[in-house]
Design a protein around this nucleic acid. Structure first.
Length: 649
RNA sequence: GCUGUUGUAGCUCAGUGGUAGAGCACUUCCUUGGUAAGGAAGAGGUCUCGGGUUCAAUCCCCGAUAACAGCUCCA
């Protein structure tokens, strides 16, 4: 018997031997027309392949990721069919479904550009309407190889070579046949809306040494209205782009004359950053951190010792030479070596540990020009860095405290949609890393255990570790869904050895401390970028550069407006006066659009009664009140935004 | 770094092989107002840079450069 769980949760049983599509048909033809894919015992299963054994079957529709997967993957075949007709001789790489839509990598005899997309879309719609079915065919590896060798398709041949021996499946829709694991939807006629979004280059098999193919991205929907909704969503996301908001709000600026990837913080951005730094400084003070300040350069030998020179020297900024021969300095690409030297400036006792050295340290890394991206990927940036030197028995506890800090910050700034990722080394590629296996194992175990004890939901990625140690990263998405690493915590047994760091134990012998690198924001630049996209520029009151604006009704009340602004500023409410020669309606509009959270209007009535009229951004008129009531209201709001440390546990 | 697209006023963007345009912002004047755009006048450009084609290039071609999308990379 086959046990079927329907999308509504109800369960039915049918005899084995039918396909998922037939079973869906027996429930109702209408229902069957919405079924996109199926899973048998949790594994994806072709909806047209008979299920012969006792098993449990699930049917997936559009509202389910597994349904979308089949829909979009089938759409990529539909696009391939269209491309084959439009560009005879075109060769295909791979064409999977992705998080939103699909792509296909192609090698076309004639170049395909953005201008061609409309034509391809049209062809896809035309083919989709023909209601092509996806026909499955099982053939041998040799036969598959023979077919593609005949066609002279080196890409598919290479893919087949990489497959295990045995049967290989092909799918045909219309005149287009493709090597494919499946599964697919029943017919192309349910693809009702097609949008090809972009063309870009992509290396064959992701290898930068190999040929670059043309990647065409697209997305399809079973209903036209869903496509419209998607396009609106994309437009909304574009409005939240931190590069656009940063310009509009005058937060930061890139000058070609200063250089690529070297952001300059404008007065408002600097004020915002300063507030964020102070916020973290206060948190860290409560956790026993000490602030240090180190230079922006260091002797080459410093980085030879740390191992960074061997690993990154050639890809980095060129050394700085002095009039002295053989003397070379490097711009610092990270702060750890300097902090290790600070640790060494005096003998340490086991009683002194943990030593927690924090610095807002500006570092420089020569990122390849194509990697630069607004404030999220730059060549000069400031890490909210700290290095904790602790005894091995303190490691896990210290690590957990750092997790607390990160979670506290994310909670305060309402980053509730983060992913915690444990990055381990690739055990098959050990030469990429420094340090002994034993130390790596200790470090990896510490991270896994600490994360588990904190109840974090983690994903594990092997091969993503730093070259000196494993890490726990906190990833947050930007407005259009790209993932960025913000907070990071790393365990390191290696640098203490390389720098020969020691502490005197209770046994009067020298011992090796363990080091934790951590940056809860990641970098000030990237954090502000993601914060901008999350808040769409409407920062929480405690953080926003300008909290209030006082708008006099006419010039006659400018003096009173100045007086009110001065009183508010004295109460630590960051306030400016808008005394432009404009009508009040205009001032309200401009300041609403500038996202000033509190708008204060003063005129004849307010001056006579010694009050103010208040408007809250996005919420309209709140009526008049005394200055005392207003400042109390603001203080209350700020207090609500910044909860006490530790309350997230 | 690779592939592709784009570069016109402070910003957002039209436009043309024959001496360059709009809206917003800016300056001045009028207006002195009650919760999302009051009116008028003015100023502002080596059309990213360097070559080439042409009688003539902002426009066509080549190269550089920067931004954008993706790939690759990310201490």
């Amino acid at each position: 018997m086959i046990k079927i769980t329907l999308p509504d949760g109800s369960i039915r049983e049918v005899a084995a031997g039918s396909t998922a599509l037939q079973i869906a048909q027996s429930i109702s033809p209408r229902f069957a027309s919405e079924v996109l894919s199926s899973t048998v015992n949790g594994e994806l299963w072709d909806i047209q392949k008979p299920i012969n054994e006792d098993s449990s079957l699930k049917l997936h529709k559009w509202d389910d990721d597994k349904g979308k997967l089949a829909f979009w993957h089938s759409s990529s075949h539909l696009m391939a069919a269209a491309l084959e007709q439009l560009y005879p001789g075109i060769k295909f790489g791979i064409g999977p479904a992705i998080e939103s839509g699909f792509y296909y990598d192609v090698d076309s005899p004639t170049p395909i550009t953005e201008g061609d997309l409309a034509k391809i879309e049209q062809k896809m719609v035309e083919l989709a309407r023909q209601g092509q079915t996806f026909v499955r065919e099982d053939i041998s590896k040799d036969e598959a190889m023979r077919r593609y060798t005949e066609k002279g398709d080196q890409y598919k041949c290479e893919l087949i070579e990489g497959l295990e021996d045995g049967t290989i499946t092909f799918y045909t829709n219309g005149g287009y046949t493709d090597l494919c694991r499946g599964p697919h939807i029943a017919t192309t006629s349910i693809i009702k809306a097609v949008k090809l979004t972009s063309v870009a280059g992509a290396y064959w098999r992701g290898d930068e040494k190999r040929k670059m193919l043309t990647r065409i991205y697209g997305i399809t929907f079973p209903k036209k209205s869903l496509l419209d909704e998607y396009l609106v969503l994309l437009e909304e996301a574009k409005k939240r782009d931190h590069r656009k908001l940063g310009k509009e709000m005058e937060l930061f600026y890139f000058s070609p004359k200063v250089g690529q990837g070297l952001p300059m913080w404008l007065p408002k951005g600097a004020a915002l950053r300063e507030r964020l730094e102070n916020f973290l400084r206060n948190v860290q003070k409560q956790y026993g951190y000490e602030q240090v300040i180190t230079p922006h350069i260091g002797m080459k030998e410093l980085y030879v010792t740390s191992g960074h020179y061997a690993k990154y020297g050639k890809d980095s900024f060129q050394p700085i030479h002095t009039p002295n021969e053989d003397e070379e300095f490097l711009l610092k690409p990270m702060n750890c070596p300097h902090h290790c030297e600070i640790y060494k400036f005096k003998p340490r006792s086991y009683k002194d540990l943990p030593v927690r050295l924090a610095e807002f340290g500006t570092v420089y890394r020569y990122e390849m020009s194509g990697e630069l991206h607004g404030l999220t990927r730059v060549r000069g940036f400031t890490q909210d860095d700290a290095h904790l030197f602790c005894r091995p028995d303190q490691l896990k506890d210290e690590f957990k405290k750092v997790i607390d800090i990160v979670l506290y910050i994310f909670k305060t700034l309402k980053f509730d949609n983060f992913t915690a990722q444990i990055s381990l080394r690739d055990p098959n590629n050990r030469e990429k890393y420094i340090g002994t296996d034993e130390n790596w194992e200790k470090a990896e175990t510490a991270i896994i255990e600490a994360a588990a004890e904190k109840g974090l939901n983690t994903v594990v990625e092997t091969g993503e570790a730093a070259f000196y140690g494993p890490k726990l990263d906190f990833m947050v998405r930007d407005a259009i869904g790209r993932k960025w690493q913000l907070g990071t915590i790393q365990v390191d047994y290696n640098l203490p050895e390389r720098f020969d760091l020691t502490y005197k134990g209770s046994d009067d012998k020298d011992h090796r401390p363990v080091m934790i690198h951590r940056a809860p924001f990641g970098s000030m630049e990237r954090f502000v970028a993601v914060l901008l996209e999350h808040t769409a520029g409407k920062f929480p009151l405690w953080l926003t550069p300008q909290q209030a604006v006082v708008m006099p009704i006419s010039e006659k009340f400018n003096e009173y407006a100045q007086k009110v602004a001065k009183l508010l500023n004295n109460c630590d409410i960051r306030t400016l006066v808008d005394d432009r020669n404009e009508k009040i309606g205009r001032k309200v509009r401009d300041n609403e659009l500038a996202k000033v959270p509190l708008l204060v209007i003063v005129g004849e009535k307010e001056e006579a009664e010694n009050t103010i009229s208040v408007r809250v951004q996005g919420q309209g008129d709140k009526g008049s009140m005394s200055l005392q009531d207003f400042t109390a209201m603001v203080a209350q709001k700020v207090k609500e935004e910044i909860s006490k440390i530790g309350s997230n546990n």
